[in-house]
Design a protein around this nucleic acid. Sequence first.
DNA 1: CGCCTATTTGAAAACCGTCAAAGTATGTGG
DNA 2: CCACATACTTTGACGGTTTTCAAATAGGCG
Lengths: 220, 220
Amino acid sequence: MKVIRDNFIFSMLGEPEVAELARVSLVQRFPAEEFVFLEGSRPDRLFILAEGQIKVIKHSPTGRDFTVAFFNPGEMFGEVAVFENKPYPASAQATCQTTVVSIPKKAFLGFLARRPEVALRIIAVLGGRLRDSQSRLKDLAIERVEQRLASILHMLSAKFGPSLPFTRQELAEMTGTTTETAIRTIIQLKKMRVIETARGRITITAPDNLRRLAEGETLL
Amino acid sequence: MKVIRDNFIFSMLGEPEVAELARVSLVQRFPAEEFVFLEGSRPDRLFILAEGQIKVIKHSPTGRDFTVAFFNPGEMFGEVAVFENKPYPASAQATCQTTVVSIPKKAFLGFLARRPEVALRIIAVLGGRLRDSQSRLKDLAIERVEQRLASILHMLSAKFGPSLPFTRQELAEMTGTTTETAIRTIIQLKKMRVIETARGRITITAPDNLRRLAEGETLL
DNA sequence: CGCCTATTTGAAAACCGTCAAAGTATGTGG
DNA sequence: CCACATACTTTGACGGTTTTCAAATAGGCG
């Protein structure tokens, strides 16, 4: 299975081992909007995104959602629940026609115990996510919407490039604000000539100024 | 070195291995308020808290601080930077007279590669922290101060017991609000008979009601 | 007691959320 | 090709939560 062989986590494995994983893995397709797993359900597989895009969201009792992360092909998701044997802490939703490969928990944990290199890769991935997550925590705790939005746009552009295919509502759910406030703030950024907008898309035109805004400087 | 032997991460190691780690480890003492490491500095050691208490904080350009986590004796900290070989993403500060043990990065990474059990423990720790962190993200993104504070108190009581030795300002810096707002919210909770207060201390008297508040229910 | 720190209170203003409504692109079916 | 449905975007007014600033009160320790 090419997806497994090309994955960052497993890229150092030999052909027989990849084949072993491929034998127990499962390929599933999801249409847009469909959920791969739901917050609170029991995990028994680890997922790798093959094609399409996955967003991980947490629901609030009040009805508002918060987007924890977006994943691109090649990335692993739903792993925290697997390692801890607790219910999924969030839901995973396909944003478009999407293909995922999943590996049973047992097979994966067995692999981890036998191949320290794989474990080291996992540690690197988790470490990076923890760093990002704590950085966002700080932003949400003490920064204003404008700076938080700049920070999110900066982060997204590092992952998706300068042209970001997200609606105002999706950006609001990542930033921890409402659609209306996101719109008003985006208009501010547009006036500062940091971004340009289109329907369902935002293009970053001044990455350096965006970074300055994300770091709390005010543009003259 | 007893601290290493008793640590969750290393508890399955044999006596010779513990001795090997102890030989390269370093013991340091810090008075209250002193920093063990600073945000942005280069990591070369992994820290384990032996005695006292450590708080991990992120500074904002605006001067306000945010407390990412508190650690008790036996816990590991500063590890994300070690795994990624990037600057520390936050600072670690002793809150009282504190003793830490540190292991050089190289020795530790070598251990990881040789002992998959150690790596699995690390993965479990990181996974738990990532889960906590994402849960707090959601709180900060969409919940009001009262619920966030209840959530933080709930989390702290799971770790420190029902009697929490924190000032209003410390709680504010964990909750992502100001000291004044924290005080006003704490007074609300006191009126609901969920907590009792003293100078520099908060005692939880109705844990079930606190949990309900943290989950977004409103007490009748 | 006197000092230092923590806690409390008050009033005003800023920021952001909420609600309601209208405008605008995109695609679909006739 | 046009009418229409749909989803995304925008705008305005209002109100609530929280921050900010300033000052007063109270607990603990030498």
